[in-house]
Design a protein around this nucleic acid. Structure first.
Length: 279
DNA sequence: ACGCCCGCCTGTAAGC
DNA sequence: TGCTTACAGGCGGGCG
C-alpha cells in the first residue's frame, strides 16, 4: 500500500522531525522485521549513539542516513508504518516491532501487522550496489527528470502489458497496484495493452499521466484506503483516496463518462478500469 | 521474454 | 451465530 507518494510524505516529515536527532536506545521484539541482521543486539549496536543526518527515498525504499556513514534502510512492505511518538509513555500500537528512542525524548516506531516490511543497517557507500533490491531499481519518476522519449523507449521495448511494466521496479521505481490503475486511467489506456503497441502520442499520455498522478498524490499526502493501513509519521491518514478515479470504485460511475467502473483479475491482483475511457 | 503461481503474514469481511 | 474462505498486495523466486 505505501507506494511512492506515501513513502515520499514519510520522507519529508522524517526530514523535519527526526533528522538531527540522536539515538539513545533501540528495542526490537523479534527477528522478523530485522531479518537481515544476526541478532537484535547487533542491529541495536549499529544505531545507538548515532545521529540521523539525512533521509532519501529510492522508489518505495527509505534511506535514513546516520552520521558515521551507515544508513538505516526501511521498506514498509504492505502494512508497515513509521510513526513518531512524543514520549515513551504514548500507547504502543499492536504489532510494533522496532522502537528507536531518541535522546531529546520521543520515539520512532516501526509498526507492521503483516510483517512484509523490514529495516536494516548497512554502509551507505555500498548499499546501492550490494543490496540487490536497491541495485536493480529503475528511474524514480519524481526524482530524476526523464524525457518522454527515454520513457517511451523503455516501454516500447517490451511485449509485457502496461500494468506489469508500470509496476516493474526495475524500470520505474515506486509504482504499485493503486497508482498503476490511476495512471492508466489518466492516460486513457487499458492495462492489458502491451508496451510495444503504444504510439508516440500514447507514450506521451502515459508519461504525463504518471507524473500528474504521482504529483497530485503527494500534494494530498498519499492514499489511505478503507483498511486505514497507511498513516504518516504523525499517525494521520492521507487524502488522495478521495480523488481516485478507478481504484476500489467497482460498480461506481466513472467520473468522466458515467459508465460503470469494472474490476478484473490481472495476475493475482485486482485491477480497476473504465471500459469506455481506457482503450 | 512473458505470464502466472507461490510463500511470506494478519485483520477484516463475505459466504455457507 | 460460528466456522471457513477470500482478499488485501510488495517482492523474490520458480516454473512452463
Amino acid at each position: 500500500m505505501p507506494e511512492l507518494p506515501e513513502v515520499e510524505i514519510i520522507r519529508r516529515d522524517f526530514e523535519r522531525e527526526i533528522v538531527g536527532r540522536k539515538i539513545k536506545s533501540v528495542e526490537a521484539d523479534g527477528m522478523r522485521s530485522i531479518r537481515r541482521h544476526h541478532n537484535r543486539k547487533q542491529f541495536a549496536n549499529r544505531l545507538v549513539g548515532k545521529k540521523f543526518s539525512g533521509v532519501e527515498r529510492r522508489g518505495k525504499y527509505l534511506l535514513c542516513r546516520l552520521d558515521d556513514g551507515d544508513v538505516l534502510v526501511v521498506h514498509l512492505g504492505m502494512s508497515g508504518q513509521l510513526v513518531r511518538a512524543k514520549s515513551a509513555r504514548e500507547a504502543t500500537k499492536k504489532h510494533t516491532h522496532v522502537v528507536i528512542t531518541l535522546t531529546q525524548g520521543g520515539q520512532l516506531r516501526f509498526v507492521d501487522p503483516r510483517t512484509f516490511g523490514e529495516m536494516f543497517v548497512t554502509e551507505l557507500d555500498t548499499v546501492e550496489k550490494e543490496v540487490a533490491e536497491l541495485a536493480h531499481l529503475g528511474i524514480d519518476p519524481l526524482d530524476e527528470p526523464m524525457s518522454w522519449e527515454i520513457f517511451g523507449r523503455m516501454f516500447t521495448a517490451h511485449r509485457q502489458k502496461l500494468k506489469a511494466l508500470l509496476m516493474d521496479q526495475r524500470l520505474i521505481a515506486g509504482i504499485g497496484n493503486i497508482y498503476s490503475d490511476e495512471i492508466l486511467f489518466a492516460a486513457g489506456l487499458r492495462g492489458d495493452r502491451t508496451g510495444e503497441s503504444l504510439s508516440a502520442q500514447e507514450v506521451r499520455r502515459l508519461y504525463r499521466g504518471m507524473i500528474e498522478v504521482l504529483q497530485d498524490a503527494v500534494k494530498h499526502r498519499g492514499s489511505t484506503l478503507a483498511d486505514e493501513q497507511y498513516v504518516d509519521l504523525f499517525g494521520q491518514a492521507g487524502g488522495y483516496q478521495a480523488f481516485h478515479q478507478v481504484y476500489a470504485r467497482e460498480g461506481e460511475a466513472c467520473r468522466r463518462c458515467r459508465k460503470v467502473i469494472v474490476r478484473h483479475r490481472y495476475g493475482n491482483r485486482s485491477t480497476f478500469s473504465c471500459p469506455a475511457c481506457q482503450v
